[in-house]
Write a protein that binds this DNA or RNA. Sequence first.
DNA 1: GAGTGGTCTAGACCACGAG
DNA 2: TCGTGGTCTAGACCACTCA
Lengths: 243, 243
Amino acid sequence: MPSRRDAIADDLRDRIATGRLKPGERLPSESHLAAQYRVSTPTLRSSLAVLQVEGLVEKAHGKGNFVRRPLRRITYVGGGRTLDGQTAADTALSVTVHTTRIRAGGHLAALLKVSASSPLTEFLCLSHEGERPHSLARIYVPCDLAPATALREPLPYGGMTTQLTQLHPPLAEVRERVSVRPPTPEEASTLRISSALAVLAITRQTADTAGRVVEAALLVLPGDRADAVFTTHYVIDEKGTER
Amino acid sequence: MPSRRDAIADDLRDRIATGRLKPGERLPSESHLAAQYRVSTPTLRSSLAVLQVEGLVEKAHGKGNFVRRPLRRITYVGGGRTLDGQTAADTALSVTVHTTRIRAGGHLAALLKVSASSPLTEFLCLSHEGERPHSLARIYVPCDLAPATALREPLPYGGMTTQLTQLHPPLAEVRERVSVRPPTPEEASTLRISSALAVLAITRQTADTAGRVVEAALLVLPGDRADAVFTTHYVIDEKGTER
DNA sequence: GAGTGGTCTAGACCACGAG
DNA sequence: TCGTGGTCTAGACCACTCA
């Protein structure tokens, strides 16, 4: 037997799917809905929570619950085609970059395969699509690979990309690990997502032909809007099929 | 100011991290904990819900709340190295496969780039690691590529892999789309995960050199245990850097 | 100030698991 | 049967938004 919560969530989901509740529209207040469905407000709120993690409803404290506008999906393209990973070209993204010099701690040292406390340049990137926060990226590069001017005049977004593709030795391999987890409180607030919504977390390592890790990135994308796409081509040589 | 819920969740998380609550151990009952923390049971339950989506606590109706044993991570390796995508070799996975003949609906037809209602063979794979459900895979192959015996004697897991790598024309490209979403009720129950825990959903298309999609797969992995790893190599030719 | 959602309470009743 | 978690109630009080 379906619970009241799920039954109400199903009904509201249907009202959204069939357009009886339109994108951007405000739902009746929680107390009104609770009265309509003849349940208590906590029960009704748990129904809304279901729709919230599905990305169908957006809550705004003091204003109401709103049907989410059909969300433009974010597509992360893997494989190092764009080093920053964002399809920054087609969507008008505004990006703020903070550049800092830090020292590798335990986690970062392992990621970049450098000794602990070796100097790194951190690019902290927050991209917006209009008013809406879009994604969060922390990119780490060994200091000798980052332009010395980066601290004073931050690179434009993607500037590090062209910088790296001209390296010697050249780039050889991109390794990306995708996982899903709840956002940290900071991530939830900067991305303006509910802490109940999972994020897509991508850890990227880029290495050159000498095996040196020239870049590592920690990317965080809101789980309800983000996809990551990876394309791998098989290469045929004389001996058989390889990768 | 942190809410009571978060404060209690933080405290319990700390008790788990420092080993004062050990893996597999049963927590005090919810009413006991509520009394200890001097909150009502709904408040305490919401704290446990936080730890639950973080994968630290497991609830068992009628038995209690348990600290999760450190979970062996599932790593999906992308790029078609193993067509089934599971690292079946090193972990003792038992897999049940159900083979069915179906007709492509709208979604599947688009995925396989075939006309609607063209015949497909579906491999419904549920893998277990010991007692614990591990992952769910629905693999679709055009009927003429699936061995005719598949319906009577289901292929061993991975059998379709070797079948496909020997194709003519040979395989050319694997395209994988990773996204995160809440599980469907069926997925939640077959994978034995809470419906509040997001899953990693991977849609895979494998094409041959003629551009024909020879396989499509819908993979579902529990979000608290799963990673997906993609490795891309750059190929250098005389003209410059390519992929 | 009026209305909204956010948090929390102190219970009630039901469903499940184990002895 | 007993203790457990699962669901739900009918409120209270606070914080936020907007007129």
